[in-house]
Design a protein around this nucleic acid. Sequence first.
DNA 1: GTCTATAAAGAGATAGAC
DNA 2: GTCTATCTCTTTATAGAC
Lengths: 205, 205
Amino acid sequence: MAQAEQTSRRAATEARILDAALDVFSAHGFRGATLDGIARAAGMSKPNLLYYFATKDEMHIALIDGLLDTWVDPLERIDPAGDPIEELRAYIRRKLGMAREYPRESRLFANEIVQGAPRIMPLLSGRLRALVRMKAAVIRQWIDDGRLAPVDPAHLLFAIWATTQHYADFDVQVRAVLDTDDPARFDTAQATLEALFVEGLRPRD
Amino acid sequence: MAQAEQTSRRAATEARILDAALDVFSAHGFRGATLDGIARAAGMSKPNLLYYFATKDEMHIALIDGLLDTWVDPLERIDPAGDPIEELRAYIRRKLGMAREYPRESRLFANEIVQGAPRIMPLLSGRLRALVRMKAAVIRQWIDDGRLAPVDPAHLLFAIWATTQHYADFDVQVRAVLDTDDPARFDTAQATLEALFVEGLRPRD
DNA sequence: GTCTATAAAGAGATAGAC
DNA sequence: GTCTATCTCTTTATAGAC
């Protein structure tokens, strides 16, 4: 009993810290984040924080590692056996859903990448690159079969990433520009993006 | 003579500092940037830097202010009297050209906005918002005239911003994912985006 | 496991010589 | 205008009591 309870207690505290760390890292970037800020958000002292994660780097790594699977999941779920247009429409929906439900996670990655991805470059040129190659082959096959307009598969994926993540990463700009702090902005975004991509990808002739 | 020469000498030094500051701010964000780093990049001592710009904030403000006009210019040039599809195609080209020619400037703004735009919020909810409203009205008129597929004008602009700026802001990811460090990636991007948007925006029925 | 106190390094800004 | 030296505050991390 003692062993399991201690383990789960530790896991709970670690989860509380990582949630606080996500708040702070996503809002200020790695360097802009401070242990003071994370400690405050987690409701504990700074040395206690460092009892669980020895360094600021270690905390950031734990956070990224814990999010990887969730982050690439929408792309992995594109089904080669499905209808091309519907598969891509569903992918856009999933990605926009991620931007809506997990904006902090999106901004965490955005901060990293904009600043040259010093801590996640291995992920980008490893797992992500391999996954893109795989899905690009699927899309290329769809095009060859005449079921999709001819576009560059990788750049199509970039366009979907950019347009959907925009609503998380640049949320403050979206809200500043729109008339009101439009609570329906994600629904309008979804309708707009689906229309653009679906019509843009429909096979010609 | 003395007066003018001193003025131009000062202007040249200021320009050299701002170029170094753009390097460092765009690569690390405001908080991640250090005066040491900027001084090194500018080839001068830290106190000398502060002789020209009294504070780090002042340097950042001078940089942003100097870039504003350039930054909104592509949107301003959308012509209500032009052909809708061609105007938007040209806008995409101009924006992608900016991402290609001025990636540091794009990342400077991206860093700001991802982190909540603490220093440029007035710009977003002022000048940018007003400009978007104006151009959104133009696009809405085009749609009402049946010259463009019905999409939300503001979100269409977001989609163009997102897809084009992606090639500057997430350049490290684009290069990591593509097969080679593809020097033609901007050309492929342009072809892909033009195809997507032009087909996606062609009036239906 | 959690805290207070503190060491050690980093970074913005100033003093003052040249 | 430019520099070296330095002040001061912030921030990462450690020491050691409870």
